[in-house]
Computed example of a mutant assay.
Amino acid sequence: MSRTLVVVSAGLSSPSSTRLLGDRLAQAAARETGAAIEVVELRDLATDIANNLVTGFPSPKLGDAVETVTRADGLIVVTPIFNASYSGLFKSFFDVIEAGSLQGKPVLIAATAGTARHSLALEFALRPLFAYLRADVMPTAVFAASEDWGASDGPDGDLTARIERAAGELAAAVSGRPAAPAVADEDEFVPFDQQLARLGITSSR
């Protein structure tokens, strides 16, 4: 069964350094796993996310995006850093995902900003968020400041080296778990007893 890596990008511009970082991480991980890559661009869902927060009901487009994320074998989540934390759009998207949907799912966290001063946001904002969601957060987080693009060295090595290390961790985590099940046919009938059994409940008649 093929595996799928999903990039969730909260970049606001086009082209976006946030999307570029997500693409590079996904390509590096896919080389090791052979997984297919899908991308969820949150800027295209901004209105749908806001409406969902107010009404409690997702649009078909947002519902498809949530389904893509929750069924992924591994996630790469990338946000620009605003005011020392993830963007509101990024947080709002994960607020509309049902609790428990990301439990145990391998997640690689990454971020971009204009200056390296924001790099600690990965540790004090993104990592606690996905730990709370009970995801399996990779040890290496990747931050890219403006000066990192094209740089060959730095205190933690160049950006390419960080990407390869983080992608290797994600690839190992994805390869070590069963592939996500295929989407069931919407018309498939599942008897009520079987539905209860899947929840560990024994029916009585």
Rank of each mutant, 00 (worst) to 15 (best):
S2K: 14
T4N: 14
L5H: 04
L5T: 09
V7I: 14
V8Y: 00
A10D: 00
S13L: 13
P15K: 12
P15C: 07
S17R: 15
L20T: 13
L20M: 15
L21H: 05
Q27G: 11
R31D: 09
E32S: 11
A35L: 10
A36Q: 12
I37L: 02
E38H: 12
E38Q: 11
V39P: 02
V39E: 09
L42H: 05
L45Q: 03
N52F: 14
L53Q: 12
K61R: 15
D64F: 02
V66P: 00
V66C: 00
T68L: 09
T70A: 09
R71K: 09
D73V: 02
G74P: 01
G74Q: 10
G74K: 03
G74S: 08
I76P: 02
V78S: 04
V78G: 02
T79C: 07
I81V: 13
F82A: 05
N83V: 15
G88S: 05
F90T: 06
F90Q: 07
D95C: 10
D95R: 01
V96T: 06
E98L: 08
L102G: 08
Q103S: 15
P106K: 02
L108R: 03
T115W: 13
T115Y: 04
H118S: 06
L120K: 03
L120H: 10
E123Y: 08
L126R: 01
R127V: 07
P128I: 02
P128L: 09
F130R: 00
A131F: 12
Y132N: 14
R134G: 06
P139W: 10
T140D: 05
A141R: 09
S146G: 15
S146M: 15
W149L: 06
W149Q: 05
D153G: 14
G154D: 04
P155H: 04
G157N: 07
D158K: 00
L159N: 01
A161T: 14
I163W: 01
A167E: 05
E169R: 04
E169H: 00
E169Y: 02
L170W: 03
A171S: 13
A172Q: 11
G176H: 06
R177H: 09
V183C: 10
D185V: 04
E186W: 09
D187S: 13
D187A: 15
E188W: 07
F189V: 15
V190G: 05
P191E: 07
P191G: 12
Q194S: 11
Q194E: 15
Q195F: 04
L196A: 13
L199A: 15
S203F: 08
R205D: 15
R205E: 14
